[in-house]
Structure formats: structure tokens, C-alpha cells
Design a protein around this nucleic acid. Structure first.
Lengths: 308, 308
DNA sequence: GGCAACTTGTCAAGGTTTTGTATAGTTATT
DNA sequence: AATAACTATACAAAACCTTGACAAGTTGCC
């Protein structure tokens, strides 16, 4: 969805069903959307503007006041815009402080008590002060772990675990999609080991990479290695990241050289996941670069590798 | 399609339906298209020019300002995007219309060719003129089916299937999150049958319900029925929707009354999914409301049920 | 309840930009 | 010679712009 100023007010009015007089008024009163102009002063809207307008209209149609709807649109967008480009590439963590443990544990509480509205509220508040990167590392990640642990110890029902992890997964996916426009390089391939269904940390890695403007090819859960060969030849990924949570699936990763064709160390292959933390001896079993025991470490390692 | 200057202005005017006076004006005002000339100064257009003109005219006919349509044509060509000559690949659609088949199949093409940037662009354009609901039903749904079919017939590798369906899943999840603020009623519970890992249509249902301001408790893939009992007592859902794609998992749904406590028909339980389409006899095996063979049907049925 | 203040969609007036088409005189093509 | 195309200028309709106004609805306060 581009920001290219392209559409005249007539098209926009007809396709959104908002009268042009109303569009004038919205821009005058709320500065929304701030359409670009031709040299002669005619308004030019982008696709993004149109999408914004459609969203606002849908909210208004369902009863929200215009000014509120526009404010909401703005704050939703602020979530996606938290990414701060610096002069030298991209800042991993804008220094705005770390979310407190109490915030993190209230999120866990809200989710395990099935109060999704409260979870929304909490995350919204946190997003006002922290970037998605920070929340991914310091809130979502710990929450996912806590949920996994509590479930293993029988403190949570499967249903609650499903609800909570799907909820967190949704946020992560959203941030992965709304990242900055990716650089024009070959993507980084992300996949779970064969038989591995826990994609939480893979998603987190995806979010962090995507937020640093890397294009990501996300293959998700349970990716059979043997099928990767042709795919990798096709898309020529910059790097391949494989993740395993359970030792069984980690062991399957050992045979990747058999399936992933390498020419002069390309694509570079990296791996990680909880399986390698709880059984460190697995690390030497799998060829390639071990990403370390935490997501933060993994991101550091990836940065190093990608810089070459 | 060549760049060879062959056609005089009369031919071009008649085949494109643009008056020659207008062609003069376009060249004078916008330098588009810059037709070659004969020794005597008569214009000669190439096939490519004609294609460009057709495209611009189609855009203008759908309301875009000429200068903008020409600017768009230029930027499309500058970025080296494909310039679909015959079909209206990039034509604008009124908001009420249905996305064209060609748009849907372009998305499928982009995904199976691993061109995520193209997919983003396409969806962006479509999203400017269609609601997420429309896209869910008419674009994402068919694309998911097409991907599933192509994979079953061995035309797609698992990797490609994973990439494409994860991509589409991400969009759906995003739309599920960004829906209007939910009403203050008990949520609708959505879950896949035990052993069922295909959550595509469940997600689509989730998007559509969420867009109608229903709160949704999304449990996702592989939900063991026996764990639902306590959960349902806790959250008291308005309705429970269970989905199965494969006959094996559909059969497991039959025993839900054993696990879901019902008081006076509440919560109401509904089910659906491809399993019941390919083996209709399964429909009578499972108690509760069958949602019908398509998502559209399912939404209609749900609307009826929820109105009571 | 009743009244003031605010919100918000729509309209009108008067002016500018954009764009298709017409006219006139000239030149090329067949 | 007849037809088609070229350039340049002009003009009018359509589409937009800004400003200001106002009615209908909503909200807040006494």
C-alpha cells in the first residue's frame, strides 16, 4: 500500500462514499487526511489515505464520533510508526526505558483470566511509551514463556493457553506486517523445524528483523527440510533461520546440509530455540551458526552475520 | 509487444477510442506518449504506446484525473512493474463492486512466485477500494483454496504453500485485530477441531464476526474438546464455532455434547468446514447448527442464530 | 427539563485549474 | 486532388478550491 499521492478527490469521494465537501471539512477541521496537492492546488490522496478514510468511515457508520474515529486511526497508526530510523541504519531499541515487570505480569493476568479487553487496554498503554521491539522482547516474549511454563505445570488449561498464545501471536503478526518498507535485498527465510508447532519465538525474530527493514519470508510451523531445497534455489534467501522448541525437532535440524544447497557459505544458515537451551549438547549437533539462548542474543548474532 | 513505431494517429484514435485532438493535447501537455515521427512530422505510435494509452484510458474512465493516470503509468513503468496490456490489472473499482478475478489470480500468482512485494502492492491497491470483508470473502478465501488445491495436486511445494498461507493468515489476523471496538457482550468462541491444523476458514469467520463488532475468543488450531468444558463455564460464550477441514477431525466433533455443558441451548454450538462439504453425511453426525458449505452461507447462518 | 455550546454534514458563492474539443491555416500522404 | 495529420490558439465544461454559513444533532450544565 503506497503513500504515492495519486488519486483526485473525485475518485476518492466516489469509492469511499464520502462527499467531497465532507472530505474538505475533515481536512480543514482535523487535518485528516492531509492530502498532497498538485501544482494547481488540487488534492491528491494516496492509497493509504483511502484505506484510512474507509476505516474511519466504517467506525463512524457504526456509531463513533468522527473526531474520535480520526483520533483512533491516528493512535493505531502510531503503533506501526514507532520504528525509528537513525542515521546509521536502524536503531534496535529506542531508549525509552524498559516496560516494568508489573506491566508484563498484568498482561499475563489479563490473558489467563480471559479478559481480552483488559489485555488490549494494557498493550495500548504500553505502546504509548514503548516500541513494538521493546514490547516484543520484554513483554510478549516473557508472557509467552510464562504461559508455556504454567501450562506445562498444569496451572493453565489448554484452552486458556490457546487463547493467550493466539492473542499474543496476533500482535506479533501485526507488527511483522506493519514494519517499515523492506530494503530491496533477498529475504531472510524463517521456519520452524519439522514437527515443531510452536512458532512464538520465530515470530518474535520475524518482528525484530522486519522492523529493521529486512524482507522476511515466513514459512512458520512444521517445515519439512527436504522441501526447502528447491524453494531456496528459487528465492535465494540472504539467510535461513531454523527454530526448534522441543529436542525431537531440534535433532531433525541436524540434517539440514543434506537439503539446503550451499555455495560459498550462502545462504548462511542459523538456528536456535528453547530445545538448545534446555539441552545445550544439541548445539554442536546442528551445523551452522547457533543464535544463542535468548532472542536478544539471537538478534545480535544475526546482525553480526548479516553485516558481512 | 514491441516499441517499434508503426501506427499512425488515426489507427490509434480508432482502436483506443481517444480523439486525435486529445492525443495531441496529451503529448503537448504531458509528453505522453512521446510518439515517434515520420520524416514529414506525422506521429507514429508503437504497440506499447497503444497498451499504455489503453491503460490510461481505463483509469480515466474510472475517474482518475488524466495527469494522475499518466503519472501512475510512468511510476509503474519506472519501477519495472508488469504493465498488463489487455486486462484491467490495475483498474480502479468502485467500493461496492467485487474485486475482479484477475486481481485475485494476480495475488495467487504473486504468492506462488514468492514475490511478496508484489502481493503487498496488490493487496494495498485492493484495500484502497474494497473493505477487508470483501477481500476476505472474494480474494483471500479463493486464494487459500487455490493454494490448497494446487498443493494437493503437487503443483506447489510445501515451502511455497507454507509461505503463501502464512502470508494470507497474517493479513486475516491483522484484520481480526483492527476491527471496530467490540460490543459489550460475551464473546464468540472459535476453535479448530482436535487434530485440525488448517485454520484458514476459521480465521476468515473470525475476521467477519470481528468486523461486525462481535468480541471473538480465538482458540485456533487443534483444540482438544475435553479441555473446553471449564473454559466455557468461565467465559460463558454467546456461541461456540467449531471447524474441521479433514473428515477425521470432523468425526471427533461429534462428541462435543459430552464436553460442552449446555443450559437451555446456551451456548449455541455451530460447526462447519470443508470436511462437511466433501462428505455431507458427516453433517448429520455432529449435533448443533451446520453453518453451510461456504463462508458467506456460514455468516448468514450465524447472523440468524445470533439475532435470537 | 431547558438552554447554551459544541459537533458535524451539507450548501452556496465566487474564483481557479484541468481537460476535451473546435477553429484556422499549413503540410504530408496516397 | 482528396484525405489525413500537423501546429497553435482559443474556449467552455467539468472538476476543484476556499471561505463562510447554517441546520440538525449531541453534550454538558444549571
Amino acid at each position: 500500500m503506497t503513500e504515492e499521492p495519486l488519486y483526485n478527490i473525485g475518485v476518492v469521494s466516489r469509492t469511499t462514499g464520502i462527499l467531497s465537501a465532507t472530505l474538505h471539512a475533515w481536512e480543514r477541521r482535523y487535518g485528516f487526511p492531509m492530502a498532497a496537492r498538485t501544482s494547481g492546488g488540487h488534492r491528491l490522496y494516496s492509497e493509504k489515505d483511502i484505506a484510512r478514510l474507509r476505516w474511519v468511515k466504517s467506525q463512524v457508520d457504526s456509531g463513533l464520533a468522527v473526531s474520535r474515529a480520526i483520533a483512533a486511526a491516528r493512535s493505531i497508526e502510531a503503533e506501526g510508526r514507532m520504528f525509528l530510523p537513525t542515521e546509521k541504519g536502524y536503531a534496535l531499541q529506542p531508549a525509552t526505558g524498559v516496560p516494568t515487570d508489573s506491566q508484563q505480569s498484568s498482561l499475563f493476568q489479563a490473558l489467563t483470566q480471559h479478559d481480552l479487553a483488559a489485555a488490549d487496554r494494557l498493550l495500548g498503554e504500553m505502546l504509548a511509551f514503548h516500541s513494538p521491539e521493546e514490547l516484543t522482547l520484554n513483554v510478549i516474549g516473557p508472557a509467552l514463556n510464562q504461559i508455556g511454563d504454567a501450562w506445562e505445570q498444569g496451572q493453565l488449561s489448554i484452552a486458556t493457553e490457546h487463547l493467550a498464545s493466539n492473542y499474543l501471536r496476533q500482535r506479533l503478526l501485526m507488527w511483522m506486517v506493519t514494519g517499515p518498507s523492506p530494503r530491496r535485498v533477498n529475504p531472510i527465510l524463517l521456519a520452524c523445524a519439522p514437527g515443531e508447532w510452536h512458532e512464538g519465538s520465530l515470530l518474535m525474530l520475524g518482528v525484530l528483523l522486519r522492523r529493521q527493514a529486512w524482507p522476511v519470508a515466513y514459512l512458520g510451523q512444521n517445515m519439512p527440510l527436504k522441501e526447502l531445497s528447491q524453494f531456496i534455489q528459487d528465492i535465494q534467501p540472504t539467510a535461513v533461520i531454523l527454530v526448534a522448541m522441543r529436542p525431537e525437532s531440534a535433532r531433525k535440524l541436524a540434517e539440514w546440509p543434506h537439503w539446503i544447497p550451499q555455495i560459498g557459505g550462502r545462504p548462511m544458515v542459523a538456528f536456535g530455540g528453547r530445545a538448545f537451551v534446555i539441552q545445550p549438547e544439541l548445539q554442536s549437533l546442528v551445523p551452522g551458526n547457533y543464535l544463542g539462548d535468548t532472542i536478544t542474543e539471537g538478534m545480535g548474532r544475526m546482525k553480526q552475520l548479516l553485516e558481512q
